[in-house]
């Protein structure tokens, strides 16, 4: 297995996720935007737990902080925690059924959102309503789609 090619696929999917994460959305949808980067990261952490993990999460997190104009460390912290949890749980997660996995994703993205919210409150700009938890729901609902797509990509490019 060629290592370089494997990383190329991971980086490309994360980049696509980053573009989706900043894509302009209609106003009524902004609170529902799924956490694309976190979703893709969770998938790779479960699929390749020995190669994708905290370091990838830290790099992706810094990129997301810059893109969102957030305080450096907000997404970095959240994504690192999500990566640590999913690498820790990957054996269990792989055995779960699709909707059980979606339930776990709901919890993971929920934790992601709580951490982001916590750092934003440090900065003084936190949301004033629990709406900030909605992305956990939309991300969980999109999980089957993300899983199928990324698994197809992984098999097609033989990333192992």
């Amino acid at each position: 297995m060629d290592n370089a090619q494997g990383y190329w696929v991971v980086i490309a999917t994360l980049l696509v996720a980053a573009v989706l994460a900043v894509l302009p959305m209609p106003l009524w949808l902004v609170w529902l935007r799924p956490e694309w980067v976190a979703l893709v990261l969770v998938y790779w952490c479960i699929a390749l737990p020995h190669r994708v993990g905290v370091v990838a999460a830290l790099l992706a997190g810094i990129a997301m902080d810059l893109l969102e104009g957030a305080m450096l460390g907000q997404n970095t912290f959240a994504l690192a925690v999500v990566a640590l949890l999913s690498v820790g749980l990957y054996q269990r997660l792989r055995l779960f059924s699709l909707w059980q996995q979606a339930g776990m994703v709901f919890v993971l993205i929920g934790i992601h959102q709580l951490i982001c919210q916590w750092v934003q409150n440090l900065e003084g700009v936190g949301a004033r309503s629990p709406l900030f938890l909605l992305p956990a729901l939309s991300s969980a609902l999109l999980w089957p789609l993300v899983l199928t797509l990324l698994r197809g990509l992984r098999r097609h490019y033989r990333v192992a």
Partner: peptide, 29 residues
């Protein structure tokens, strides 16, 4: 690492220059 980033960005403006360079890198997105 994370705590370092948060403190550095919140308490000091030392990251402003670095941020400008990194911002240029992520702008294509």
């Amino acid at each position: 690492v994370v705590a370092g980033l948060i403190v550095a960005d919140m308490r000091f403006n030392s990251l402003d220059r670095t941020r400008a360079i990194l911002d240029t890198l992520v702008a294509p997105v």
